[in-house]
Each structure stands twice: as C-alpha cells, then as structure tokens.
Computed example of a mutant assay.
Amino acid sequence: MATWTVYLSGEIHTDWRERIERGAADAGLDVAFSSPVTDHAASDDCGAAILGAQDRKFWHDHLGAGVNAIRTRTLLERADVVVVRFGEQYRQWNAAFDAGQAAALGKPLITLHPPEHDHALKEVDRAALAVAREPEQVVAILRYVVDGRLP
C-alpha cells in the first residue's frame, strides 16, 4: 500500500505531534504527517501580513482564518486519517471545527484528549472511530491500521 497521510490537528502548546511522529518513525511506519501552521503568531497574523493590515481586529482575524483555511481544507481532504488533539489549557474551537470537517468528508477520525473532556466532546467522540488518551496510543492505532501489527 502507498504511504498513509495523517493530518494532526488541534492544540499547539505541547509535544504531542512530535511524540506521534517519533513513535511512527520508530515503528517504521510508512506514514507522512501534515498539520496546520503551529506558529501561533504566524497563524494569527498571516492574513494581515499577506493581504494588508486591518483597522479592526475582526477583519484581521477574518483574513487570517481565510488564509489558514486554504491549508486546512486542502490537507484535510488529502488525509487518509485525521487526528484531533484537544488540550487541557485552551478552548479549541478550531480543533472541533476540523473534527467536524473530517467527519463530513468521511475521513477516519481519532480524537486525543484527557478523560475530563469526555462529556464536553461526546458528540465529537461519537463521530470518531477511536478516542485516545496519549499520543502513544495513536501510534499503536496507526501501527495496527497501516501494518496490521499490535504493540
């Protein structure tokens, strides 16, 4: 089978992406990863930096959301599997939106979050095919679906 493409969406303040990428490499998986821009300032300011400064914060954010959506939509559509991480520190509206888009596109979805988010994410988790607590569980899922190997 060809290389699997896995889109890693969500929280940008911890090392969960690196743990998944390192684990997949250590397992020898034929997997390529993609993600949104994880530089918070660049993501927030990309629209105004490219298309021009705005007088109102609403329009500044609106431009950035549009430019970021070009990347997000394209990479979500190309993904074989989508992993969405909901972190503990911030409300992750963008992550929930990405999970909804993945579900609407019929993409296999794995959510990654602590148990204390279970109630708040019950609808998102219902759409997911797996709910993981740790990045290493995501690696184990990928190992199984890509190569048919259990940990």
Rank of each mutant, 00 (worst) to 15 (best):
L150N: 15
E134H: 14
Y90A: 12
P151Q: 01
V37I: 14
W93P: 06
T5E: 03
Y90T: 10
I70V: 12
R71L: 15
G52Q: 01
L150E: 12
G66E: 09
G23T: 04
A41H: 13
A140S: 13
H60C: 04
G10F: 02
W93Y: 10
E11C: 10
A48Q: 13
D98F: 00
A25T: 15
F86A: 04
V37P: 12
N68T: 07
L63P: 10
T111K: 10
R78V: 02
R71I: 12
I110Y: 01
G87E: 00
H60N: 06
T111Y: 06
T38C: 09
A130F: 15
T3C: 06
M1S: 15
V6Q: 05
A127R: 07
T72Q: 09
A48I: 04
R71D: 11
E136T: 11
L121I: 03
R56E: 11
S34A: 04
Q89M: 11
G66D: 08
H40R: 14
E116C: 07
F97H: 14
V82D: 08
L8Y: 04
H113G: 00
V67A: 00
A41D: 13
A96R: 13
R73F: 10
S9P: 05
A48H: 04
A79H: 04
L75G: 07
A25F: 14
L142S: 02
V37S: 12
V6K: 03
D98T: 03
R19G: 06
A41I: 13
A49L: 12
R85A: 13
L76C: 03
L51N: 08
R73H: 14
